[in-house]
Amino acid sequence: MAIVNATDQTFQSEVASGTVLVDFWAPWCGPCRMIAPVLEELDKEIGDKVKIVKVNVDENPDTASQYGVMSIPTLILFKDGQPVDKIIGYQPKEALLSHLNKHL
């Protein structure tokens, strides 16, 4: 499954069903650029179990505000539309997998 870019308008439909990892990011954020290839690897490895969605906080401030995103990158794991886990800051792939496996 490919990584999806969501907007304030499309966000709810993107996280409505299944397990979805949302990356709140911005292009100027160094740690966000560091985590992007990690998310690409995760998508290749477990994309059939977890959908990955990216939300640019500069272009979609309403969604970021709604979920209390104060620093980026912030990753929020949703299950059937409800947030179940939050990870703030850069994490290596193994740490992200550990968080995800708790909810799969």
Rank of each mutant, 00 (worst) to 15 (best):
S17E: 15
K79P: 05
K102I: 11
I88D: 07
Y67E: 06
A26H: 10
S98A: 15
E41Q: 15
T7A: 04
A26Y: 14
E45G: 11
L39G: 04
T7F: 07
V53N: 05
P83S: 03
Q9V: 05
K93M: 06
I52N: 08
K79R: 14
G18F: 12
K49W: 07
L104Y: 07
A95I: 10
I87R: 02
K79Q: 14
V69T: 11
V4H: 03
K79W: 04
G18I: 06
I46Y: 07
V38D: 10
I87K: 05
K51T: 13
K49M: 09
K51A: 11
G68W: 05
D43V: 07
I3T: 04
V57G: 02
F78C: 03
E59W: 02
N60T: 04
Q12L: 07
P92C: 12
S71Y: 06
A95Y: 09
Q9R: 08
V57K: 05
W25S: 00
F78W: 11
K93L: 10
G18L: 09
K51I: 12
F78Q: 06
V55G: 02
T10S: 15
Y67R: 11
P37T: 11
K49S: 14
Q82C: 00
I88H: 03
M34N: 13
L75C: 03
Y90W: 13
R33T: 02
D43H: 13
I46V: 15
V20I: 09
G81T: 00
S13P: 00
G18P: 13
K51L: 08
G30C: 00
G68H: 07
L100A: 08
N101E: 15
K86T: 15
T10D: 11
P37S: 12
P73A: 04
A6C: 10
W25M: 09
W28E: 04
A16R: 13
A16I: 04
S65V: 01
N56T: 08
P27I: 08
N56W: 06
G89S: 10
Y67M: 01
H99I: 07
Q82E: 12
S71D: 04
V69N: 12
V84D: 08
K49I: 10
I52Y: 11
K86Q: 15
N101H: 13
C32N: 04
I52H: 07
N5T: 14
N5F: 11
D85S: 15
M1R: 13
P27Y: 05
N5K: 14
E41P: 01
K44C: 01
C32V: 02
P27M: 09
H99S: 15
M70C: 00
I46L: 15
C32F: 07
D48G: 15
V22M: 10
V53M: 11
T19S: 14
N5H: 14
V15D: 14
K102P: 10
S65C: 01
K93A: 03
F78S: 06
D62C: 00
L77G: 05
V4R: 09
P37V: 10
M1W: 07
V84L: 01
K54H: 07
S98P: 00
I52E: 07
D8F: 07
P37N: 13
G81N: 00
